[in-house]
Amino acid sequence: MPHYNKYFDQELQDLKETVLRLGGMVEEQVSNAIQSLMDSNLDLAKSTIDLDHAINKLEVEIDERCIDLLALRQPMGPDLRFVTTAMKIVDNLERMGDMAANICERVIDIAAEPRLKAYLDIPRMADIAKEMLKDSLDAFVTRSTELAQKVRLKDDMVDALMDQIFRELLSYMIEDPKAISRATRIMFIAKYIERVADHATNISEMVIYMVEGRIVRHTEPEALNLPDKGE
């Protein structure tokens, strides 16, 4: 339903599209970071690190735009929830961008050393994390709390994989102390991926707030049962 002021509508739409553009950039960065790890592709790792500044720049731009909207339009109700959610989403996206760059830095660190067997469950964990990121952004666009809840539930899988990877890396290190340097960096990478999943979870929780006005952070994911809004 449109606002009385069509320019306000346009500003909200622009904001949404820009958040999605940032989301797309972050998705690509995370993908490239994982790819550079799998292929030991140093060029890809370096170019990914170089692109992080573009994400930072866009994040600041969106932040300023949100502050402008709050100051100049004084949005209320769903608009207020949308703008404040957008601010928090871009904050999380920017952090994910940092994680992608951090993964690439570790990829460069370990490139000189022999590869440590296969990367255990890291590809699986990365797939889930990327899917969570994509779904959280889809939930934002489509205002789907159902999809947002699914993302929240998946975070437990990522955490479980993280624990498993940690145990396996630990046993490598016990068996072969020479592997400690590599194994530690792999552990970092696993942790970065796990953080990406955490940020995707944060985004999903904010989407639930945006749609329903309910703050679900720091609570267990649950089935949703809210009454419909009356006409």
Partner: peptide, 19 residues
């Protein structure tokens, strides 16, 4: 009321929407 009204009409009014 200003963050999360229960009624659609209230929501539209406070956010300056028509329809």
């Amino acid at each position: 009321i200003f963050q999360n009204p229960a009624q659609k009409r209230t929501e539209d009014y406070i956010s300056g929407k028509f329809g």
